[in-house]
Design a protein around this nucleic acid. Structure first.
Lengths: 223, 223
DNA sequence: CTATACTGTTACCTTGCGGTTACCTCTACT
DNA sequence: AGTAGAGGTAACCGCAAGGTAACAGTATAG
């Protein structure tokens, strides 16, 4: 795991680098905006730690510059705990914000957290096997076939996609689709059958599987 | 977007709920551990906000309880900023930790972050020999073979993984799987046999061993 | 007003979970 | 040895959960 640290306080930086090394985190280090830009150009990191106050600019503008071009998770450091700064940082795509002084152990934990998370590309289309779902346009296709779903079926499918690849509890589905009404197991069963027959026709691989007592899940058939 | 807030300070809770509502975040609210368990049972949230100090327990143990069974991102609140608490929280799968007092705006931003941008979490897969268990997606494989477990068997396996590499007491298992019913030793024996035959077929190394008078343990060697 | 689709309801079938029983081995103890 | 108790395996089978199809009531459109 390798990160980029941009921090002008050399004492703090040294301590951090040493501590993170113990935790198995490699660190590229820059003390100014200019340096950061130069160093970072040829490398992709697991995370970037940015101080806000820098001698030749600030971390926020650096983040703004990188917005769109770099996709590393960013954690901001700052001595100020002004709310405005925090909100601005988050609006610039920061994923975390730590106020000085902080414990190095906490920094390490938060860095690891960011590095392990894969950022969500807000992709609007979901694909599984030959199924393709455009979540915004609400267009569903299986191979060449266009699938039209009833409102309930769409609700269920999008719920499953939202939690993919994890299963969703039956009771949770029922609450989601029939928030008010009395729950009736048969309604659930019917809906399920209808969605199934719409998603998989003929020889197409079934995608909707129930794990008994555990829930419903989207996945390609398991051998 | 809907979240679960568990917080015993009703004033703070009220303010939070109102503020979050303005931000378009719906809130289910519980003030105790018991309430939280009851309310949360039939619902899946976009995020869970847990206070650490609660009248009838603490948020940490609640998180521990939910580990593996729920897949919501958890943000902890606490008046204490003791490092130990923070580290413990993160080790229990927390994705964020906010120290009181905090700005409601910051809470809202962090909640949105958790709910929107961390859909793909680090995969929590447990591996032992050729066995691989994805605790979130509930997918179990042994080598190339996909294993499907009954609800009871899944419960037992996840309990063993939770305590790995330590053995689990027999009475503890029985309490966990049959919390209410009359315990019958044969039920336990059957379950055990069934899980064994599912986990290890043919020439595969057995992984489920009982240590006499101590309990059940997952491990490779049988000595 | 007719036609169509959506959804709740009912009836019936299939599956396999899990409690039960029977029988086995192995160890510990008298 | 004999016996008791724990652990392990295999087979049986009732029954609830899951799955399907058909029907009916109610929208909604054209």
């Amino acid at each position: 795991m390798i990160i980029l640290l941009v921090e002008d306080d050399t004492v703090l930086a040294t301590h951090s680098i040493n501590f993170l090394a113990q935790e198995g985190i490699e660190v590229d280090y820059a003390s100014t905006v200019k340096q950061a830009q130069a160093i970072s150009e040829q490398q992709q990191y697991d995370a970037i730690v940015l101080d806000i106050n820098l001698p030749d600019g600030d971390g926020l503008s650096l983040a703004k510059l990188w917005q769109g071009t770099r996709d590393e998770p960013i954690l901001f450091l700052s001595a100020r705990d002004k709310l405005d700064d925090k909100l601005k940082a988050f609006s610039l795509g920061a994923l975390d914000y730590l106020t000085k002084p902080f414990a190095l152990a906490e920094l390490a934990v938060r860095i690891k957290l960011l590095a392990n998370k894969t950022l969500v590309k807000k992709s609007t289309t979901f694909k599984l096997d030959s199924l393709s779902v455009d979540l915004q346009a609400k267009i569903i296709t299986r191979g060449q076939r266009v699938i039209i779903l009833s409102p309930q079926q769409w609700l269920l499918l999008s719920l499953l996609i939202e939690h993919y690849p994890n299963p969703v509890n039956k009771s949770c589905i029922i609450n989601h689709i029939w928030p008010d009404e009395d729950t009736n197991n048969n309604m659930y069963k019917s809906l399920l059958t209808r969605l199934r027959t719409n998603l998989s026709r003929d020889e197409e691989v079934p995608l909707l599987h129930t794990l008994k007592k555990q829930g419903l899940v989207l996945r390609v058939a398991n051998a």
